[in-house]
């Protein structure tokens, strides 16, 4: 069987690798190539312009703002989303009090309902979520300000998406709301595979819920958390952040560039301003940021794998 083993493996890998090269690697190479041209995206003619697009990008205030916001998204959103998801899934699966006659390890009362409820936002498309929240944030007749008026806080009527100090946070809140459910389900699945004996042993030793979480659950769930972290970071840098910013915000990207993100800027340059080459340049910058983010997360998160 040893004979021809590699040929056998290569035989199976060739197709997926070929497809991957064709549809993932090749477009990357193409974008990098176009970033050195002055292609408009509207005509087949273009010329090489060397590093002109990159020089322009470094001078572009809007680019720096979008980079800043994208980085904030990539750093803050995973922390909040994964933190919340870990808390919820812990309470659903492990955090409950022992009930007479029940198993030693169980979720809080009604946890099966919560599990479904948390997953609801994941079922809605991000475009619908963004539209719903755009209505809710309407300062004149939206749900949030109506609620504030209803409870006697009529003086407190923030402009939400119309206020440059609040808009970015409003957008982030929507992303947290819409993605937490997915991670609750992901972590719940991970927690289900942790043997109950470990928890029982910890309980016998007198560990409370906080200790159990940090000493048992989190270390055994680390791999899942880490991949969730990378996934959420890429989500926050990519399509999801584009959708909410494009649909919800002033302009979009405003007010006064307070919510613009790199993907939105790529889109605007390519499809609004007819500057496809410059857009791919920003795209290349986005690629660098995304790769750096994944590398840092995987590097920092490297731990010895626990066998159980």
């Amino acid at each position: 069987m040893q004979h021809g083993k590699y040929r056998f493996i290569v035989g199976f890998l060739a197709v997926p690798l070929g497809l991957y090269t064709l549809f993932v690697v090749w477009p990357f190479i193409q974008s990098i190539y176009y970033s050195f041209t002055d292609w408009t995206g509207l005509s087949p003619e273009f010329e090489m312009v060397g590093l002109a697009n990159y020089e322009r990008m470094l001078d572009d205030d809007i680019f720096w703002k979008s980079l800043q916001h994208s980085l904030l998204f990539a750093l803050l959103l995973p922390v909040v989303t994964i933190g919340l998801a870990l808390f919820f899934s812990f309470m659903i699966n492990v955090g409950g009090r022992r009930r007479r006659g029940g198993p030693a390890i169980t979720g809080v009362r009604g946890s099966s309902v919560y599990k479904i409820v948390y997953f609801f936002p994941q079922v809605l498309s991000i475009a619908i979520v963004a539209l719903l929240f755009a209505f809710a944030y309407n300062p004149d007749s939206g749900a949030i300000n109506s609620l504030l008026r209803g409870i006697g806080l009529g003086e407190l009527q923030p402009l939400w998406l119309g206020d440059p100090d609040l808009a970015l946070w409003c957008v982030m809140a929507v992303l947290v709301w819409s993605t937490t459910g997915f991670f609750v389900v992901l972590f719940s699945a991970g927690m289900a595979s942790i043997p109950a004996e470990l928890y029982e042993a910890a309980l016998l030793d007198g560990a409370n819920r906080v200790t159990t979480f940090f000493r048992v659950t989190l270390p055994l769930l680390w791999d899942t958390v880490q991949s969730g972290w990378v996934y959420m970071g890429i989500l926050a840098l990519g399509a999801e952040s584009f959708a909410v910013v494009q649909i919800m915000t002033t302009g979009p990207g405003g007010p006064d560039y307070s919510t613009t993100v790199m993907v939105l800027y790529v889109y605007q340059k390519a499809f609004r301003d007819g500057q496809a080459a410059y857009a791919t340049t920003i795209g290349v910058a986005l690629l660098v940021v995304t790769l750096a983010f994944s590398a840092v997360v995987l590097r920092l998160g490297r731990r010895e794998r626990l066998e159980y």
Binding site: R7, F8, G11, A14, G18, T21, W26, Q30, P44, F46
Partner: peptide, 27 residues
């Protein structure tokens, strides 16, 4: 196996067609 390998190999040369994909050829 031979066939799937060939299929994989085919996809490499076809890429050259694509080099003209995004920005097209002349009119």
């Amino acid at each position: 196996i031979k066939r799937s390998a060939a299929l994989g190999l085919i996809s490499v040369p076809t890429m050259s067609f694509l080099s003209a994909c995004a920005s097209g050829g002349g009119g």
